[in-house]
């Protein structure tokens, strides 16, 4: 965390217009990350690569996350009048967070033996503002992996030299790794369905009028 904060300070000193945010990971891995605004992504990545103290010269992984609309509750302390006297109570306030797509980059420094540095970029929403600048001009290795993220999540990488589908075929509609992806209705009999497959089986047989 301290190291990440020092990297953040170093980048913000070099690029004052780029605002970075620390995203803490509360899990056991403790792999915290830096959230970058999409407009400054390429400059930040170039700075991380070229800074003589950082030298993050290897982009190991590009992947995507689909975040649906969610409601978060914040605890706030407010003053309330209760039985004639004013007391301070804790109230939970619900806050609606609109959904977005997130692209996650893992950077390593081969020269210094450090890493991974996790960068996150968020799109405006999940439908029409889904563009993120491409890093293919900074790290050549991003080219293929960004095509995969485009294929499976539908993030449009602006400035990508060859943005085509990678795993699914040309002419396929939809992005299979999105949480609202509806797969074709091609369930077939399985002798021992369980879990989601059992639910799919019961839906299928209800539709066909079979018990």
């Amino acid at each position: 965390m301290e190291r990440l904060a020092s990297i953040q300070a170093r980048i913000e000193a070099a690029l004052p217009e780029a605002k970075l945010a620390l995203a803490a990971n509360p899990g056991a891995s403790g792999q915290h990350s830096l959230v970058v605004e999409a407009a400054h992504l390429e400059a930040v990545a170039r700075r991380l690569r070229d800074d003589p103290e950082l030298q993050f010269d290897y982009l190991s992984n590009v992947t995507g996350v689909d975040w649906l609309d969610r409601v978060e509750t914040d605890k706030v302390r407010v003053k309330r009048e209760y039985q004639g006297e004013e007391i301070e109570v804790e109230e939970s306030v619900e806050r609606r967070v609109p959904g977005y797509l997130e692209v996650v980059y893992h950077l390593y420094s081969v020269a210094r033996g450090t890493g991974p540095l996790v960068l996150r970029v968020r799109t405006g929403n999940r439908t029409d503002r889904v563009d993120v600048p491409s890093l293919a001009n900074v790290f050549r290795g991003a080219e293929l992996q960004e095509r995969e993220v485009y294929d499976l999540f539908g993030v449009v990488f602006t400035g990508h030299p060859d943005l085509r589908r990678l795993l699914m075929w040309e002419g396929f509609s939809g992005h299979p790794m999105r949480k609202d992806y509806v797969e074709p209705d091609d369930y077939e009999y399985e002798p021992t369905p369980h879990g989601e497959v059992a639910a799919k089986a019961s839906r299928r047989y209800a539709k066909r009028g079979q018990p």
Partner: peptide
């Protein structure tokens, strides 16, 4: 290869569900 799935899903001369 169709827009959603492979078409047809099977050849009836070879296989039946």
């Amino acid at each position: 290869l169709g827009a959603r799935d492979i078409e047809p899903p099977y050849h009836a001369a070879v296989w039946r569900p």
